[in-house]
Nucleic acid binder design. Structure first.
Lengths: 204, 204
DNA sequence: CTAATGACAGATTACATTAATTGTCAATAC
DNA sequence: GTATTGACAATTAATGTAATCTGTCATTAG
């Protein structure tokens, strides 16, 4: 494994930026994984000394968290779009959850290393993750509110319901259960839970 | 740590039984945890040689699984009683889930080592665990059937619904999430999910 | 003839030693 | 003056070795 290849390189200017470091760090983390990667690896890829990294990030963990934060923001950005499609709230809700599941499953396979780190962060309940969950809940809340407004759903507290829906579908999006997402039954299991929850929403 | 104390001892007869080994193994596992405990520890506690253990169990893992199986059976036995209380199915269902949560939380605190092993078995999706889940689903199924029969719940497939309810409450009973069971919000979270699911059952 | 033992080879784990990494900071470059 | 460097102490990880454990089986005891 060659760890000395310059990924981006600090070719242009004499001074480095936080963004440059972040971009390169994401690259390197994706290759080797945040645990195997050293700060010196990131610095080497940029053609700078590892000391310079510490001018922009307090610690390796801060750097790691910043990378995962960007990764999660990109993630919730895609979901935002999925929730914004036109149509009845019921369909939007379903499409949102389908997208959530599809994205998580895909990222789990593709970006194994970053997914594992997200996994770790969830364990330690880092602020990065709770901010991400807040965004998801807000997106859900908006769809539910729309559904109540146009009479599709019974009147209920949108925030409470959004939380309940996320909690009830834990099995299908929480990284702990990622190993189960490849099984054949997982789609059926989701369908069952979805049916139960939908009835709850429609006839509350 | 004194590992040489005889817990049960092979005092009576000259021949040892599978049950004696199991009982002592559970004791020793509880003290030191299944990872730290050696087969020789178990044999020493019984006053026999470690070779004799292999006459009754193929491997250390087989012994460990047998202990966890007993532990889980005792667990589902208690739940069986909780589901058998008289009253409307809705209350029985709630009591069953409350008991499930209470027992899991208690075992998580008290029997840390065995709980961790159960945790491991869940990861490896060992047959021991799926058998245990089958029992739980059957218990739920019975309550739901009773609820349909007396008109409390809408007509639905009891098995499908039982699975859906277990899946939807993953966050509250799956060992992966044990760390979250001490938080203050967990009861509120359960209440929210329960409300959603109950509406689903009542008005499907 | 069955139950139990304990010596043994192969596999695993624990430990101490060695190497590398993190994060700091005085010195250097621009 | 600000940005960057690289030597450094403290911490963390990797390595190799000694000790322990697992599982087998020929032998002994009843």
């Amino acid at each position: 494994m060659n760890k000395s290849g310059r990924a981006g390189g600090n070719t242009s200017s004499g001074t480095i930026s936080r963004e440059q470091i972040l971009a390169t760090a994401e690259d390197v983390f994706r290759r080797f994984g945040p645990t195997k990667t050293t700060v010196m690896d990131v610095a080497r890829a940029l053609g700078i000394s590892h000391g310079s990294v510490y001018r922009y990030f307090d610690s390796k963990i801060a750097l790691r968290n910043a990378v995962v934060e960007i990764w999660l923001q990109r993630f919730s950005g895609k979901l935002e779009k999925a929730g914004a499609v036109p149509g009845p709230a019921r369909q939007r809700l379903r499409f949102w959850f389908d997208t959530l599941r599809r994205l998580k499953t895909a990222e789990y396979r593709r970006e194994t290393e970053l997914f594992a780190t997200y996994h770790e962060l969830v364990q330690d309940s880092q602020p990065v993750v709770s901010a991400y969950y807040d965004v998801l809940i807000l997106q859900l809340e908006n769809i539910i509110t729309a559904g109540i407004d146009n009479g599709e759903f019974q009147n209920c507290d949108p925030r409470t319901t959004a939380c309940a829906m996320l909690d009830a579908t834990t099995l299908f999006h929480h990284p702990w259960h990622a190993a189960a997402w490849h099984g054949k039954e997982i789609d059926d299991e989701f369908e069952r839970v979805w049916t139960l929850v939908m009835y709850g929403l429609l006839c509350a």
